[in-house]
Every structure is written in C-alpha cells, then in structure tokens.
Design a binder for these strands. Sequence first.
DNA 1: CATGAATGAGATTTCATTCAT
DNA 2: GATGAATGAAATCTCATTCAT
Lengths: 193, 193, 193, 193
Amino acid sequence: MISQSRNSEKEKELLSAALELFVAYGFHGTPTSKIALQAGVANGTLFHYFKTKDELVLALYVDIKQKMSTYLEEHVLPETTLAGKFRAIFTNSMQWALANKTSFQFLQQFQTSPYLSRISPEETLGQVKDHLMLIQLAVDEGFFKPKPPELILTMVMGHIFGLFQYLCSSDFTNDEQNKVIEQGFEMLMAMLK
Amino acid sequence: MISQSRNSEKEKELLSAALELFVAYGFHGTPTSKIALQAGVANGTLFHYFKTKDELVLALYVDIKQKMSTYLEEHVLPETTLAGKFRAIFTNSMQWALANKTSFQFLQQFQTSPYLSRISPEETLGQVKDHLMLIQLAVDEGFFKPKPPELILTMVMGHIFGLFQYLCSSDFTNDEQNKVIEQGFEMLMAMLK
Amino acid sequence: MISQSRNSEKEKELLSAALELFVAYGFHGTPTSKIALQAGVANGTLFHYFKTKDELVLALYVDIKQKMSTYLEEHVLPETTLAGKFRAIFTNSMQWALANKTSFQFLQQFQTSPYLSRISPEETLGQVKDHLMLIQLAVDEGFFKPKPPELILTMVMGHIFGLFQYLCSSDFTNDEQNKVIEQGFEMLMAMLK
Amino acid sequence: MISQSRNSEKEKELLSAALELFVAYGFHGTPTSKIALQAGVANGTLFHYFKTKDELVLALYVDIKQKMSTYLEEHVLPETTLAGKFRAIFTNSMQWALANKTSFQFLQQFQTSPYLSRISPEETLGQVKDHLMLIQLAVDEGFFKPKPPELILTMVMGHIFGLFQYLCSSDFTNDEQNKVIEQGFEMLMAMLK
DNA sequence: CATGAATGAGATTTCATTCAT
DNA sequence: GATGAATGAAATCTCATTCAT
C-alpha cells in the first residue's frame, strides 16, 4: 500500500500537470516534456505510467469523468423525490464545475475534440444511461413534458454549459453564484415541466 | 481581377480543406502539408496566402463567423417585431448550423480551444453586441424576465448547442428537424418570458 | 532530367553513406542522424527520400542487389557454352564482390539479419530463378552430377562466400587474387562435375 | 553451491531468452527488458549477471562457441585416421548445427556483425588453430591438394554454411538429411583431395 | 540477490516554414 | 505567383542502466 501510494503520487502529479497544461495550451500544444517537467519527474517517467501521450489524454478524461460522477452520486442518491433528484443533479453539477473549473473546461475541450471518438459508444452511453432513465421516469410520471429523453438531456447539458460560461466570465461572490444557479434551475424547470 | 479571382479560388480551396481536416483531426493534428494536398496546391503555396498556420486558423474562424453573421442578418433584418426577431435568430441559427455542420463544429472546437484568446475582446464583444442590445430591449419592454442580458444570451447559446448536438446525433427528416427546432424555440421562450 | 539528377544526387549520397555506416556499425548501431550528416544533408532530408529508416535499409538492399545483377548479366550473357557461363558467373561474382567489398559485406549482413524476412519470397525466388534453371540444364545435359539444383546453388554460394572471406582476410595482389579465383573455380567444378 | 546453481539457472534462462530473441529480432532490435521478461526475471536482474547488454551478447557467443567445440571434440578425438577425423568434423558440425539451429543462426549473425571485432584476434585464432594444424598435416601428407590451409578451411566452412542453408530451407526427414550430409562430404573431398 | 520504478540520453520521425527555380 | 525539395527544431517515444527497497 505504501508503494502504491508512491506510484499513485507520480501518476497523480502527471495527471494534474497534464490537466493544467492541456487547458492552457491544448492537447497538441502541450509537449510531453513540459508535462513531465511540471510534474517534477523525468521525461521517460511519463511513459512509464502512460504508454503514449494519447493514453494520457484518455486516462485524464476517464479520471475526471469518474471524479465528477462520484461527486454527483454522493449528493444525488440521498434525494428521494424526482424534484429533489433533478435539483441535486443540476446544482451539484454546477457546484462541482465551479469548484473544478479547469477539470470542467478540460471536459468541454475533450468533448468537442476528435479524441471523443476514441471513447467507445458503450462507454459514452454508460455515462448517461442513469440520467436518461431518470428523465424517462419523469416524463412517464408527467413531471416533464412528453419529449424524447435524449432531447431533454442535451438541453439540460446545454443549459449547464451556458451557465458555467456565464459564471466564469465575471467575478461573482458565492452568494451571487448560488442565486444564479438557483434561478437557472427554476428557469430550466419552467422550460421542461 | 482575373488573377485575384484565381487567388481567391486557391484561398477558398485552402480554407475549405483546412475546415474539413481541422474538424476531423484537430488543429495540431492536421499538418499544413495535408491541407495543401487536399486543396490541390503545393506545400509552399499555402504560405503565400497565410503567413503562418495560426493565421490560417484565425482566418478560417473569421471567415466562418462572418458567413454565419451575414446569413443571420439577411433573415433577421426583415422581421419587425421582437418576437419575430428572436424567432428568426433562433431558427435561422439552427438552420445554418445544420446546413453547415462542419463549420459549426469548427466554431465549437475553436471556442473551447486556447486559440480563442487570440481573438481580441473587442472583436468578441462586437460579435454579440447587437444581440445583447436586442435582449436588453426585450427585458426593458417586459418581453423577457428581468435577468442580466449576458445570462440570457449564454442560456440561448447553450440551448442552441444542445439542440444542435441532439439533431446531429440521430438521423432526422427535414420535417422532424423543423418540428424539433420549433418546439425547442417554444420551450426556450417558456423559460425566458 | 536535370531535376531528377539532382534528386538522385542526394538520394545516392544517402544510400552511399548508409552503406558505409551500416557495414561499420550495423543497422541499428547507425543513427539516421549520422547517415544524414555523412551524406551532407539535413536530418529531415533523409525522410524526404525514405519514409522510414527501415525503408532505407530495404532500398539499399534492392539497390545493391540490382547493381550486382546488372553487372553479372552483362558478363554472362555473351557466353555461349555452359562451361563458359558458369565460369563467367563465378569469376565475375568474385570480381564484383572484391571490387565492391562494402556492398558485398552489406549483402551478407542483410541476409543473415531479420530484415531478410521483409523481402517477399517471390522476390527472393526471382533473384535466383535464372541460376536455378541454368543449373538444371547443366544437370540434364550431364555437365553436373545429378543433384537437386538448389543444393548445387547453395554450395556454389557457400563457396563464393568462403573465398571472399579468404581473399579479404589478407592482402593479395591482383594477380594472386585472380589465381585464387581461378583455382577456386577449378575446385568447385571438380566437386560438381 | 546451491545458490550458485540458482544463479546459473537464471543466467541460463537469460542466455536462452537472449538467443531466441536475438535471432528473431537482431541484437539491437531486442531490448533488454524483453529478454528479462522472456527469461522470467526482473528488468534489473539481467544486469546482475551481465554488466552491460554488450557483455551479454559476447557471453552468449562464447557460450555457444564453447558448446559446439565441446561437442565436436567429443566426436572427433576418438577418430584415429585423417579421413576419419575430417569426416567426423564435417558431419558432426552439420549434426550440431541442425540440432541447434537457432544457436547456429546466431553464430552466422554474429560473425557478419560489427560485434565480431570485439573478439580479440588471438581468441579467434585459437578457435581455428587446431583445425588449421590438422589441415596442414593433411596437406603435408598429400591427403589434400597443396593449398594454403586457410583457403581450405574457409572453403570447408563455406560448404557447411551452404549445406545448412539448404537443409533448413525445406523439410527433410532425418534419413534424407544424413544422405545429403554424406553426399556433401563426398563432394567436398572430391574438391579438396 | 532480486526487484522494478525511475532516469535521461538519444533515436526516429514530423512538420511549419523557407527559398531557389 | 507557384512549386516542392530542403531544412532543422522540436516532439514523441525507447531503452540501457541505476539504485533504493
């Protein structure tokens, strides 16, 4: 366990350095040498942990996705009502995004890049399946308008991306942020119910 | 004028080739040699028209932005009512995006990339100023809820990106597309009014 | 034709530099940078002519093989008798090998290396087919002992390699060399007839 | 003694793995990590037994040379006549080569490689001295034609390499192999006597 | 002894850019 | 203007070797 934590140490350093540099300079704009430098390891060490640079990019994506998922699950599971669940998903997504701006920006960058096609469709589906099912349930129960769940999901995500952009573009206090998120959620519901 | 039209011909070929390859392989994933090849010109010719590769990327962005703006202007100007203008902006944005998928994807890619910072803030502002003023007007007249125009704008854009994603993800007939756009607009208005 | 001769110029320089260095340090013991340096061209230029280092190795093999074949053909074709043809093949093989020691050593190195498997069997066969047919003819006419032509051929080649090794190991005058070759041929015939 | 036998175990595994991989991929085409992997030991363990990779190559060469020599000595020493000795040398060389194809191929590869120059001339000479003396004796007694022993030796070796190549190129039964070797020896004697 | 993570020099290859024709 | 051969800096990746455990 000691040795593993040491390994993880360098791997984490590498992932963290890669994240920062990728968001600042883009995937191809960031040489592996710079990543290694910033992570404080030797050039070759990067390739000890990730066989290729591409593998590092994908590993970073998976890592971030999983962290966000874990965070959401923890906050959504306790909710028992549909309304509570949706509010939890929305507000906690926003909170996580704002608390992990660089990570969230990386996701955006990744998802509009050709790297996305490296993720198998099953994996992609797996990530949203739970959300789609929840939406379907809400439609069935008349909580949402009768629209295809995929449409509703993309709208919610577009909404989240839009709000994130807005909240990043200026300086807001925490209170202001929370108010915007709150209002954003109300508006979203106004649209979907 | 003949020589210019010939130049323009090659320049267009280059921009068109670059667009296709950038969306497929990313900015850095696309060598200038491949762009020249696909454009049917020699390697060095690219650098007659664009001093550097970066300049080509930016020129492509400006070119696409301008084409979309022109298209929108043509369709929005004739409208006289607020409702008509917003409907026209929204539906024609969607129509243009769907008719020029690669171009729209390029815009998405560009705007989440570090290249965005190469565009001066004034230029960026200029592109949205008209829209912001229109939204402000709508808020003042009670047409929209009293929210900051920037917030409303980012929400509209998030909405558009979401719908675009959804309509690209499956095969829809033109009729179905139009219906989705129509409903999308109604939902958007339900949210904003 | 001018431009071609210029191209060929650098390509030839590269092949020639590669030959010398490969024989001295081995395929993998020779960095492409050294080849380029010795050829008097830039690092990248090598890859302008040969897509990969491997391709350079194979191209060099094909080039040398072809030069030797051409040389042999020119000297063997005029001969009309079986005896004359065999003598011509043998002595001219030896002469060419001694006049192009480095090239011949490269062939030996190549043929005992894993690179050999990159040459398709058909190509390999094509190179010896003529010789095999000539041997078969000699067997049919009772000129050679009734043995499989392949066996005879490998023996002849073993003989040639052996003599080459011997003549390289010490300093011989041209006259001595010729005498050894002559005697070597007589001994070979004593064995095969 | 127990610990030494354990070491020897791993050393043998390493030599054996190296042999196989060197013949398949060449000296430089085979990373030490792959050798260690195939030998079932850790990366660093290889360097406990061989200070450098080069040392491993040379050790392998010496090892194989010695095994072949031992085998030959055992079979040649009992012979009392010149004819018997030569027959024993020749046929047993072939038998060993065919029974240890990979090892023999390694020798060929080694001897046409720049590694050969790492072997001191004295060592090289030592390996063939006995054979040269035997040939000299045979020449003195009129058993062989009056030629330089070095010439005769290289011819014999060329002959052996040729036959080896031939017998490896197709599938032969043991009986066929033996017959070819037998005939090969008769032909060789026809040439040398 | 054995391990295997870590190293960093160096190898191959790419590619934006130049320039003589 | 147009070409494409040539450039060489820089990127990715490999691998022999070391060393703390």
